[in-house]
Computed example of a mutant assay.
Amino acid sequence: MKNDTIKAYCLSKKGAMEDYPFGPAPLVVKIGGKMFALITLSEKQEATDISLKCDPVIAENLREQHEEVVPGYHLNKKHWNSISLQGSLSHEDIISMIDHSYELVLNSLTKKQQELILTL
C-alpha cells in the first residue's frame, strides 16, 4: 500500500473526520468524536506511521508477529498499536488493522450515533 493512500483510506470510512487536536501534526482521524487513527505525515504529506486502536489480545499477537508493530506511542499501550509503514507489512494487513480499529470505535458509540454514521 502506498503510504500516501493511508490518509485517504482512513478518511473514506463512513463518518470519518480529519482533526488536528495536537497542533499541525499528527493527523487524527475520528468517528463520532472518538479517535480511531493517528497518522504521522512526512513533509511530503506521506504517512510514515499510524497508530490504531486494537483489541488487547490481537494487539499482543500482532506485536509478536511483526517487528513493525509496537505498543502505541504516547497512547494506552494495552489498546493501541503504532505501526511503521516503512516495513514489510502487506496492503491487506494494513487495511485489516485500519478496519479493525474503525469497527472497535464504531461499536463503542451509542446505537443512535452508530445509526447516524451508517446512514451517511
Rank of each mutant, 00 (worst) to 15 (best):
M1S: 12
D4V: 13
T5G: 08
K7N: 10
K7Q: 14
A8T: 15
Y9R: 09
Y9V: 07
S12V: 01
S12H: 08
S12Q: 09
K14L: 13
K14P: 14
A16C: 11
A16S: 12
M17W: 14
D19F: 13
P21T: 01
P21I: 02
P21Y: 00
F22G: 06
G23P: 04
V28Q: 05
V29D: 09
I31S: 08
I31Q: 07
I31C: 09
I31M: 08
I31T: 10
G33T: 00
G33F: 02
G33H: 01
G33E: 00
M35K: 07
L38P: 01
I39D: 02
S42E: 06
K44Y: 04
K44I: 08
E46V: 14
E46D: 14
A47N: 06
A47W: 00
T48K: 10
D49F: 11
C54M: 15
C54Q: 12
V57I: 15
V57E: 14
I58W: 15
I58P: 14
L62Y: 12
E64Q: 13
Q65F: 15
Q65P: 11
E67R: 12
E67I: 11
E68V: 04
E68Q: 09
E68P: 02
E68L: 07
V69W: 03
V69I: 12
P71H: 05
G72V: 06
G72C: 03
H74Y: 00
H74G: 00
L75P: 00
L75Y: 01
N76A: 02
N76V: 03
K78C: 10
H79R: 14
H79V: 15
W80I: 13
N81R: 06
N81G: 05
S84K: 06
S84P: 01
L85A: 03
Q86H: 12
G87L: 07
L89F: 11
L89W: 10
S90C: 11
H91I: 11
H91A: 13
D93T: 08
I95Q: 09
S96G: 09
H100E: 02
Y102S: 00
E103I: 05
L104I: 09
L104P: 00
K111Y: 01
K112F: 01
Q113T: 09
Q113H: 02
Q114H: 04
Q114D: 04
E115L: 12
E115R: 13
L116R: 14
I117F: 07
T119P: 10
L120P: 11
L120C: 15
